[in-house]
Amino acid sequence: MKKLVNDPADVVADALRGLAAAHRELRVAHADRVVFRAEAPVRGKVGLVSGGGSGHEPMHAGFVGRGMLDAACAGEVFTSPVPDQVVAATRGVDGGAGVLHVVKNYTGDVMNFEMAAELVAAESDTEVVAVVTDDDVAVQDSLYTAGRRGVGVTVLVEKLAGAAAEEGRPLAEVAEIARRVNGNGRSMGLALTSCTVPAAGRPTFDLPDDEMEVGIGIHGEPGRRRVPLAPAREIAEMLVEPVLADLDFTGGDGVIAFVNGMGGTPLLELYLMYAEVAAVLDKAGIGIARNLVGSYMTSLDMAGCSVTLVRADDELLRLWDAPVRTPALRWGA
C-alpha cells in the first residue's frame, strides 16, 4: 500500500485537522468528529445534518457551508458515524426551526441515525426529520435486500434541500424537497479498479486488468456482475440504460445529469464520459437542464464513475442555481 498517511489508524483525525486548517470558514469539533458551518446554528433556519463513513470525500464535510449542509459527521473509513456524533451535530445546528438528517440507505447509517434521533427526542424538543436516500438501481429494492443504496443523488439532495433551507422554508417543506429529489433520482456506478482501505492495506477485491465491475457501491463492496473492459461509449450505455429502465425521465423540464468520479479517475475521463452520457440521453430524447461533472462522492482511490439523473422541475432548477458556498461546491456566492 502506498498512501499519504502517518498511522492508518489516525487517517480520519489527521484529515480533519487538515480540513480545519484549510477552511477557516468551517468549525471542526475534533473530539466529536463533526464539521460545522462556522455560523451554526443559524437562527430560524432548518439545520441540515448529514454524515457517513469517511473515504467518500468531498462528501460530506466538503458540502458544509452556506446553501448546503450545516454539519457533517465523519465516521471511520467506510463506517457510519456513531449516534453521539449525530446527536452533537443535531444540537449544534438547531436554530429553532428543526433539523433534517440526510441519511444514505446503508444498514449501519440508518441504525446509527435512528438511534441518534431517539436520543435527541428523549433529551430535547428539537424536531428531527430524516430523509433516507436510495437511488442505486444496481440493487433490487425488495424484501430480499437491504434496499437500494444511497449514492450520487445524496449530493444533489444536499444541494437542493440546503438551498430550500437557506431560503427559510420550514422543516416539512425542506424534507419534501429532499424526498422529491431522491424519488426522482436514480444512479448506477462502475469500477475499473478496487480501492484500498488504509487500515486493511490492500485492495478490497481483485479485479483483473481487462475486466470491470458493474453495479458497484461506494465502499468497495463488489458489484452485480463482471464484464470485459469496454470503450467509454459502451460503458455509458451500460450505466444509463438501467437508470432509464427504472424511471421515466422523458418529458418535464429535463434532468440534472451528474457524472461522478470514484476517486481514482481523472477529470479528463469524466468529461469524456459526460459526452457519451449526453449522447445516450439525446438519443433517448431526454434533455439535460443542468449538469455536474467531477469527483464528489468517492470511494477512496477506486477508479470508475457513476451516473446520476434527477428528473427536474422549475423549482428544483431554481434551487440548483441558488448560491452555494462550500469547500467542494460553490457558485453564485
Binding site: 463506517t79 457510519s80 456513531v82 449516534p83 453521539d84 449501519g108
Partner: peptide, 12 residues
C-alpha cells in the same frame, strides 16, 4: 460499543 464502533455492528 454504541459510542465507538459505528457501522451496523455498533448499534447491533
Amino acid at each position: 460499543l454504541i459510542r465507538t464502533v459505528g457501522g451496523a455492528s455498533g448499534p447491533l
